[in-house]
């Protein structure tokens, strides 16, 4: 019986499942407000509350507001409130680990839809070189530092109140998310102070880069997301994990080739068991693309919810008995690339 369940799970068409889950999550988190659903403000995804009908708020907003309290208040009793809020965030996070990024985050879903548009237009995607990858992947930690430390500097009086929610002012999600409800009111540059002007201008620039970048590169923004950095710090606490059995791995690189985030360690690291890296969005495409039995698996506690199997691989790659008709070719025609 258990074997049957495993077989069904391992053979699933990941693309379809993922698309369905992403669509449902998108509708829920972006339009849930119409149905008066409210999940609170500790969500570990970019469910931006600037989108008025959103069903909750991204955790970075209350975090910034809480940390910007005056230092004496913060280190007094109010600090407990911060810790409680953080535990709330952790509570949400523990269920899905970084799969929040790959399956639920509406911003990520939007990027995947832009990718689908690009595929339809038959435009090929861009990738980073290894050097670019290593340099750029540090940027998310820089944003996380901005999220955490600018409010603290406000709390001790070094920065004024125009820096409040500074990351939100430059976040492209603030500009883009309200678009889903037809609200373009965030397409502004706020000239009320120099700081606000610079930050909102950065916001517009990042939004523009986001739109273009997500079109040419798969999951462009996730590379720079401070929420991803925050997730990764606590990823070991979660109940779902991405694991690898290095002895079964042939380093064929299939997982690396399909990975949206270009994580090389998936293919090349044959010693670590926990293969979740800080860029990973747990989309599980690597498991879907691995042709070895049980080399990569997605565990919920100790239950192997989704493992790589040969059978699953063959099903997903549509390697079935080919038709007897010969392959078509054209002598002088155009290639349909």
């Amino acid at each position: 019986m258990l074997k049957k369940i495993h077989t069904i799970l391992n053979n699933m068409n990941l693309q379809k499942v993922r698309f369905t889950v992403q669509l449902l999550s998108f509708v829920l988190f972006v339009y849930g407000g119409y149905f008066a659903i409210d999940f609170g403000s500790k969500l570990p995804i970019f469910a931006c509350p600037y989108n008025k009908e959103a069903v909750g708020a991204c955790y970075l907003i209350p975090l910034q507001h809480q940390l910007s309290m005056p230092a004496q208040v913060l280190l007094g009793g109010a600090g407990i409130g911060v810790i409680v809020g953080f535990l709330g965030f952790l509570f949400w996070f523990i269920f899905l680990n970084k799969a929040w990024c790959g399956y639920v985050c509406p911003f990520g879903t939007f990027q995947d839809w832009l990718t689908m548009l690009r595929k339809k237009m038959r435009v090929r995607f861009s990738i980073y070189t290894q050097n670019q990858f290593e340099d750029l992947s540090k940027i998310k930690y820089l944003f996380l530092i901005i999220v955490l430390f600018i409010p603290l500097l406000m709390g001790i009086g070094v920065l004024g109140s125009e820096w409040s929610a500074s990351f939100c002012q430059m976040c492209p999600a603030r500009v883009v998310s309200p678009m889903f409800s037809g609200d373009f009111s965030q397409w502004i540059i706020d000239f009320s102070s120099i700081t606000a002007m610079i930050l909102t201008a950065l916001g517009m620039i990042f939004a523009g880069l986001f739109l273009l970048g997500s079109f040419v590169k798969k999951r462009f923004f996730c590379f720079f997301c401070p929420m991803s950095a925050l997730h990764f710090i606590f990823s070991n606490l979660s109940m779902v994990q991405l694991k690898k059995d290095g002895s079964k791995c042939t380093k064929c690189g299939d997982c690396y080739a399909v990975c949206d985030m270009q994580i090389k360690d998936i293919a090349d690291d044959v010693t670590s068991i926990n293969i979740l890296r800080d860029d990973c969005i747990m989309c599980l495409k690597c498991i879907a693309a691995c042709p070895e039995e049980d080399a990569l698996h997605f565990d919920i506690f100790k239950f192997r919810a989704f493992s790589s199997t040969k059978e699953g691989f063959e099903k997903r790659m549509n390697i079935e008995k080919p038709k007897q008709a010969e392959v078509k070719f054209s002598q002088k025609g155009h290639s349909d690339d």
Binding site: W187, I188, I189, F191, S192, M204, I205, G208, L212
Partner: peptide, 20 residues
């Protein structure tokens, strides 16, 4: 009085064009 859509749109278009 202090929020500008015009400048924002210009900046966004500029970004898209230059980045493109």
């Amino acid at each position: 009085d202090y929020e500008s859509y015009g400048y924002a749109l210009m900046l966004m278009t500029l970004t898209l064009v230059v980045a493109g």
